[in-house]
Design a binder for these strands. Structure first.
Length: 597
RNA sequence: GCCUCGGUAGCUCAGCUGGAUAGAGCAAUAGCCUUCUAAGCUAUGGGUCACAGGUUCGAAUCCUGUCCGGGGUACCA
């Protein structure tokens, strides 16, 4: 939003108060709807910059703007200066230049960075659920957002493909799998493997119950503590040992099962519109972590504990001591992150590295960053963990044991089905040919928007009953506005009334039209703030606002039956601006637009 | 215990670099389809912004304390 009268005000005040104009920042806000004017300059806030009394300053601002040729009306309430602009100035400074609306979202070249973002990071033992979708959708949106404002973004996945959890599903497959493959059962590979993980857990639980029954003294011990007391737990551990030794048969099963899972994940990623520039595998990087730690031990960054484990003392930076290699020499969770991070740095040399990982790992990342700093990773001052909250169900957490996990693929299917039913209902007489495609876009739009409109860090509640609607603050609501505009444009073309009328913005004199224009002009600033705050929700909520304003305009002013050709053409132009912003904004959120709904 | 994030309408959430009478959506109620798609629009009701202090001309927003909830505090991942 760059209004001439505001920049003139800035020069005027800088002279008046003898302050360098570069130090003055006047950001006008949209005037609250019920005030009926266009812009507001908040002199309470502005007064601080001039170390002046808000009311006195407001008086000066009013005097200046009153005499400005581009204002129609200026009012002062307390120290809020409300401005009504001339139509000419308003549209010139908001929507007249299409490209300017989009370009306003770009940050200066000097602020552009090379950013590496790691997200998704799935385990290859079971299919992804709603919690993972939140991660994926958020990560994808942040990548698009950073890239949209001008950063150079590299998206990276880290596949968690080794460890005891992987061995559990492998063991169950060995016992119950009968050498079948996903294609035999017509299942996606990740679901196929996940079923064996569940089988393992069931068998383990059965054995646990038996052990506890037979030995009352074990009653109070946790499942994990009793893991090796069970036959199947012991067997899984042995499998892990064989894996680490590189046993040929075990490795080949591991590779086979992982390939099934990854094939399944790829389908899900594709459906979500997610691509990675690089995929790392923990099975490749954990050894590098160990090597780096051993080097660091020689350099005195790490030290040996009495029983032979390797640890680092972080008490000088307000954290605790942290073990990075067990006394038996095996790596722990954080060790592979150390290895992966150095690997990522040497592959891509980013200015900044981000991790999209759940908020339960905030402490983990604090420790990781402190370690990397001590190991003097080049960009260790620019490491950021972007935490997000869990997705709960109305009854509480999702629990796989109780079967209350919202499976990603199922959810997508259900949403698409509902969108399909809804479209069929609406179109009764003429079911569109591309109904499947439409239903998919609408269903996915609904899921993604639902996850992105809420601030990432809040723990969100997913109510399957309520969240499945396509009305109100939803993705389809925004998509629908886009489709309506597309429909207007089509009809206009069909009627072929391309009279040589000129665009005349001054014809748009209603408050609905002005609000739409003003709202469009905010887009660039919204993108920049959204990116700076790493918060796609801000953008999502803006798109809802813009859509709401557009719908009010749509309801009150017909485009195609406008009084005269010039008005029609100009309203059409305004619609195009809205359409462009909606498409651009939705695409950042990973949501597709439809030409008809 | 300590650390951390939260508590805003019946429900789900905005608002939080202090500023106008606290906003949306859902749900409820009442309207609007011979006019560009009603997945829409309009209206009504609904709030001691957890509680108590403090700072300020002004606090949902900042500070302190209390209560309640999530998460963390592993040689688990």
């Amino acid at each position: 939003m760059n209004f001439k009268c505001i920049s003139d005000l800035k020069s005027n005040l800088s002279t008046e108060y003898n302050i360098d104009p570069g130090l003055i920042d006047i950001v006008p806000e949209l005037c609250p709807r019920d005030q009926g004017m266009d812009l507001t300059v908040n002199c309470f806030r502005l007064a601080r910059q001039f170390k002046s009394n808000p009311v006195d300053l407001a008086k000066k601002v009013v005097d200046f703007l009153n005499s400005h040729s581009e204002t129609e009306d200026v009012e002062c309430v307390k120290a809020f200066v409300n401005i009504t602009l001339t139509a000419k100035a308003l549209y010139r400074d908001t929507v007249a230049v299409e490209q300017a609306i989009l370009d306003d979202g770009l940050i200066p070249a000097s602020d552009q960075e090379k950013i590496l973002i790691e997200f998704s990071a799935p385990n290859t033992n079971k299919p992804q659920h709603l919690g993972h979708i939140r991660n994926n959708v958020l990560g994808r949106a942040l990548c698009a957002l950073f890239s949209r404002v001008g950063h150079d973004v590299t998206a990276v996945n880290l596949v968690n493909d080794r460890g005891i959890h992987i061995c559990k599903s492998m063991l169950a497959y060995q016992r119950f799998g009968a050498n079948k493959s996903p294609s035999d059962s017509d299942k996606k590979g990740d679901h196929f493997v996940g079923d064996f993980y569940v089988k393992f857990e069931r068998e383990f639980q059965k054995q646990l119950d038996k052990i506890r029954e037979e030995n009352a003294s074990l009653h109070d011990q946790s499942n994990q503590a009793l893991f090796l007391n069970t036959e199947i737990g012991k067997a899984a551990r042995e499998l892990l040992v064989s894996w680490e030794k590189g046993d040929r048969e075990v490795m080949s099963l591991w590779k086979l099962m992982n390939s099934w899972v990854l094939e399944g994940f790829n389908q899900t990623y594709e459906r979500m519109g997610i691509q990675f520039d690089h995929t790392y595998f923990e099975s490749d990087t954990y050894k590098l972590g160990k090597t780096l730690v051993l080097d660091g031990l020689e350099d005195g960054i790490f030290n040996l504990t009495a029983d032979g484990a390797v640890e680092i003392d972080l008490t000088d930076v307000g954290l605790d001591k942290k073990v990075v290699l067990r006394k038996d020499g095996t790596t722990v969770y954080i060790t592979q992150d150390i290895g992966t991070t150095f690997q990522k740095y040497s592959d891509h040399a980013p200015d900044r590295m981000l991790w999209i990982v759940g908020d339960e790992q905030i402490y983990h990342f604090k420790v990781l960053f402190a370690i990397l700093q001590k190991m003097t990773l080049t960009c260790s001052d620019n490491l950021m963990h972007i935490p997000y909250g869990m997705v709960n169900l109305p009854g509480g957490k999702m629990k796989s044991r109780e079967g209350t996990v919202v499976d990603a693929d199922n959810l997508f299917d259900e949403m698409a089905e509902l969108a399909h039913a809804s479209t069929t209902e609406r179109c009764r007489s003429s079911i569109p040919e591309n109904i499947e495609e439409r239903a998919e876009k609408i269903g996915m739009g609904a899921v993604k928007f639902m996850l992105l409109k809420v601030n990432a860090k809040t723990t969100l509640t997913f109510d399957p009953e309520a969240s499945i609607k396509f009305e109100g603050d939803t993705g389809p609501y925004v998509q629908y506005a886009y489709a309506r505009i597309a429909s207007i444009l089509r009809k206009f073309e069909r009627e072929n009334n391309n009279s040589n009328r000129k665009i005349d913005w001054e014809k748009l004199d209603s408050k609905e039209e002005k609000f739409v224009a003003l709202q469009c002009a905010r887009y660039g600033a919204v993108l920049k703030k959204s990116a700076a705050d790493c918060d796609p929700a801000y953008l999502a909520n803006y798109l809802l606002d813009l859509t709401k304003n557009f719908n009010r305009f749509y309801k009150n002013h017909s485009v195609l039956s406008a009084k005269n050709g010039s008005l029609k053409i100009t309203r059409l132009e305004l619609c195009k601006r809205v359409q462009i912003v909606l498409k651009d904004g939705l695409s950042v959120l990973g949501i597709e637009t439809l030409e008809a709904m």
